[in-house]
Write a protein that binds this DNA or RNA. Structure first.
Length: 182
DNA sequence: AACTGGATCGTCT
DNA sequence: GACGATCCAGTTG
C-alpha cells in the first residue's frame, strides 16, 4: 500500500512515481499510465488563488482524494500531496473489474475505458462522495508497481494558463493514454 | 486526422 | 454572468 508518507513530498517528485501504480476503487481499476501535477504557484491550479470551499481537500492532509466536477458533467480524481498541491489522474490501463467498467462506460474497446480523467472517473464510479477520502484505506487501494516504467514528460492538456509547464507524466509508449505524448 | 459545437452546472467574479 | 484540469458526435479534408 502507498501510505501518507509517500504523498507528503514535493508533487513533482511524487507524480512520476505514480506511473505503474495500481489504483483500485472497490476492487475495480488498473495501472496508472498518465498524470499531471498542479501546485499553488501554478496559475492553472485550482489552489492558485488560495483555499475555497471547492478546493478544501487540496489544502488538507497528504494522501487523500480531491474530487471536483468539471463542465457541469464530468468528475476528476486527484491525489493530494503537500498542502495546495495535487496530482490529476488522467488515464489507466484497466486490469481489474473490467465487467463493472464496461457496464458504466458502455461496450468500448478496453483502451478507451479510462483514457481521460472524466472517463476514468466514470469507469470507477467516482463522484463527490470520494472527495476527501484517505487513499490508504477502503474503498481505495494503491499498490506499488511490480516493474519499472519508462516515464516521458511534456506539457499538460486542456488548460489555458501555464500551458508550457511540462508537468504531464506518462508511461512511454502506452496505448491507454488520453492523447499520445507529443 | 483535425476541428467544431453542444451538453450542463458549480464556483468564483 | 462567464467560464472550466472534459467528452462525444458530427463535419470537413
Amino acid at each position: 500500500m502507498l501510505t501518507r508518507d509517500f504523498f507528503d513530498r514535493p508533487v513533482l517528485e511524487v507524480a512520476p512515481e505514480l506511473i505503474g501504480v495500481e489504483l483500485l476503487l472497490e476492487g475495480v481499476g488498473g495501472l496508472i499510465v498518465e498524470v499531471e501535477a498542479y501546485d499553488q504557484s501554478d496559475p492553472a491550479s485550482h489552489s492558485f488563488r488560495g483555499p475555497t470551499l471547492r478546493n478544501a481537500a487540496m489544502f488538507g492532509a497528504p494522501g487523500h482524494a480531491y474530487v471536483y466536477k468539471i463542465y457541469g458533467i464530468h468528475y476528476c480524481l486527484n491525489f493530494v500531496c503537500k498542502p495546495g498541491s495535487a496530482i490529476l489522474i488522467r488515464a489507466m490501463e484497466p486490469t481489474k473489474g473490467l465487467a463493472a467498467m464496461h457496464q458504466r462506460r458502455g461496450p468500448l474497446p478496453d483502451r478507451q475505458l479510462c483514457s481521460g480523467p472524466g472517463k476514468l472517473a466514470q469507469a470507477l464510479a467516482i463522484d463527490l462522495n470520494q472527495n476527501g477520502l484517505s487513499l490508504d484505506e477502503p474503498p481505495f487501494a494503491l499498490l506499488p508497481p511490480d516493474q519499472s516504467h519508462d516515464v516521458a514528460t511534456g506539457p499538460r492538456i486542456g488548460i489555458t494558463k501555464g500551458v508550457e509547464t511540462p508537468w504531464r507524466f506518462v508511461s512511454r509508449g502506452s496505448r491507454f493514454l488520453s492523447k499520445p505524448m507529443r
